[in-house]
Simulated scan of single mutants.
Amino acid sequence: MKEVVIYTDGACSGNPGPGGYGAVLMAGEHHKEISGGEKETTNQRMELLAVIAALKLLKYPCSVKLHSDSAYLINCFKSRWYVNWEKNGWINSQKQPVANRDLWEELLRLYRIHQIQFIKVKGHSGDRWNERCDELARAAVPK
């Protein structure tokens, strides 16, 4: 499998409010930056959209090292929250509907195509690519 390194980040001005996301994809000599935004969203939605947008660019199954500062994203996969969400009809442990179900379902579809290793990055700690994703996300927030 081709190896791809992906960094992602989301940003929101107000929560909810206008938001943006950014991602950097690297594979061998190739380097691609992407970003996007929405007028009314949340930071969590932007964190998820960054990953979805990046994974959608992969043309075939890949081995992915995905770096994110989102505990929401990382904990879902490391603790396998999604297993119970699906088993319980998208009801969380507090007996409430899972927030952002639409994005989680799309992300799980993509997750099952690739071999993804989720790597937690400390936000705003000087990590070059995390900082770049933050710049891309903030720049993509609709004015």
Rank of each mutant, 00 (worst) to 15 (best):
E33T: 03
Y60A: 15
E29R: 08
I6E: 10
W85T: 02
I52E: 11
D102S: 01
S63D: 15
S93L: 05
Y7S: 12
I52K: 10
M1T: 11
A54F: 15
K2E: 13
Y21M: 12
K120P: 02
K143Q: 14
Q96V: 01
R80P: 08
M46K: 01
H67C: 14
N75T: 10
S125K: 10
M1Y: 09
L110M: 12
K39T: 04
K2T: 07
I119T: 00
Q117N: 02
Y60Q: 14
G22N: 11
A99S: 13
E47T: 06
H114V: 03
S70M: 04
N130A: 05
I6Y: 05
N75Y: 09
S13E: 14
L103T: 05
K122Y: 09
S70P: 01
R101G: 01
A50N: 10
G36A: 04
G89H: 05
Q44K: 08
K65M: 06
E3C: 06
Q94M: 11
Y21A: 12
L73P: 10
K2W: 00
V24P: 08
N130Q: 02
W90H: 06
G28D: 07
A54E: 06
K122H: 04
S63H: 12
N75D: 15
G36E: 04
Q115C: 11
R132V: 02
R45P: 01
M1D: 13
Q44H: 14
G20M: 03
Y82F: 14
A54Y: 04
W104K: 02
N130W: 01
K39A: 15
K2G: 07
L136T: 09
N88I: 01
W104H: 01
N15Y: 04
E38Y: 00
L49C: 11
L55V: 12
F77H: 03
S93C: 08
E3I: 04
Y82A: 09
G126T: 05
E29Y: 06
I52W: 11
T41M: 13
S93D: 05
S35D: 03
L107D: 07
E86C: 08
Q115V: 10
H124W: 04
N15P: 08
L58Q: 13
K122W: 07
E3L: 06
P18S: 11
Y82C: 06
I116D: 08
L55R: 10
M1H: 05
K59R: 13
E40L: 14
T42F: 03
E38D: 06
C76W: 07
V64C: 01
L103Q: 06
K143V: 00
L57T: 13
F77A: 08
E29M: 00
P18D: 00
I91T: 14
V5D: 09
E105Y: 03
I34T: 07
W104C: 02
G123Q: 09
C76F: 01
I34Y: 10
I34H: 08
V98F: 00
